[in-house]
Design a protein around this nucleic acid. Sequence first.
DNA 1: TTTGTGTCTTGAACGTGTTCAAATATAGTG
DNA 2: CACTATATTTGAACACGTTCAAGACACAAA
Lengths: 229, 229
Amino acid sequence: MLPERNTPKAKRTRQAVLNAALALFQERGFEATTMRDIADRASLAVGATYYHFRTKDEIVLALYGATLDAAEAWVRELTRSTPDFAVRLRGAIDQALAQLAPCRPFLGHLAGHVFIPGSPLSPFSSESAAMRERAMAIMGSVVEGSTLKVAGEFRPHLQRLLWLYQMGITSYWISDRSPQQRNTQRLLSLTVALVTKLFAVTRVPILRQANGLILSALELGTGRLEQAA
Amino acid sequence: MLPERNTPKAKRTRQAVLNAALALFQERGFEATTMRDIADRASLAVGATYYHFRTKDEIVLALYGATLDAAEAWVRELTRSTPDFAVRLRGAIDQALAQLAPCRPFLGHLAGHVFIPGSPLSPFSSESAAMRERAMAIMGSVVEGSTLKVAGEFRPHLQRLLWLYQMGITSYWISDRSPQQRNTQRLLSLTVALVTKLFAVTRVPILRQANGLILSALELGTGRLEQAA
DNA sequence: TTTGTGTCTTGAACGTGTTCAAATATAGTG
DNA sequence: CACTATATTTGAACACGTTCAAGACACAAA
């Protein structure tokens, strides 16, 4: 029952560790930063750090999770300002990336764990599950009340699909070495348009016959996600 | 300049290590098997093991690579026996999974690293570049001389796309907990049909306008894969 | 003030993957 | 066979993530 202590002192110390870790990760990367380094910079002993965070990875996860708060607020604004689906989708992802920018250099080490469901490797699957839920809920708000055109039977899968799409973009962005990550921007422009069109196409009568196939596949895939342990 | 020694003795020792590792991974999993265990079982000192494999991960990679030999032979047979694209694709993937079956329990470890950019275990990394090439070449043979219908401009991307598809299926299979991995079989049936139809649809005139968009996105994506270091 | 009960902190110690200088085996050459 | 160079092996040592028993601290009740 270690995590999420709520005494004021614990909160302060948690924050101190996060600050130290973020600074060090940015300075020298994830691998090159040892738990002893983090503890030192936070003026603590190693053991104390482990009192507040179960593992080194959990620190990264906490840093990542902090950005979700901002993302949720931002999307509330965004959905109020426009119903245009493409604009909303692009805006949500842009904002998420901007938020994550300081973490970009070391985020690669977490990316895999975050979105590989049921990976026996990841000891935080329950923690990352909570974040998945939050991130998917954000995509839910993007869709809700938007101009999106899509065959009705896809609605229940939309937030999962869009979340997957965002994950893909994010993982591209993480290893995008072009200046200012321009390639990610270009890929975003292309694929946001593509995704929008693709959804629209699901309503074309002649193509509609394939929807059943797609849905079955989606449901199978979803089943796996649910059982993630 | 450590790897790939070609003296007969080195080859024998490499094989002994692989045998020991495979047995231990199957008995108790990847994490629970220490390098000392592997060395012991292979009647070697730890250092000797590291003389033949740079890291523990490289052992997994070698075990995985061993299956490619069989896959290549099998696909040569398969393409001779039928030109039907769907049958070939399904056959190639089925065979690959059957081949990997003994490794399934601990391949999850590999799967976790699949999407971590820069991880030596990632299929995008330079370490596994050779294997990637071979696996993609196999998909090339599946397409070549097959009944596949697809818009010509996609041809250059086919083997990469199909390889990605296979990766997706494999990663699903790895964490598929249904008995006999039935869900994977069902997903395969659905998606092989889907993929075939999807390719065919790229030739429909009305939809053809989106092909440019898709191709641009593909090329951007490809760029990243090339530069993976 | 003293005692008691939780909340934090400490740092030595453990297990793991990995490295390395030194020792040994092997093979090629005179 | 002896000599040399290269290929292989050894096991102690290292660094890092992690654990844990013991202690320090805060603060309420007596």
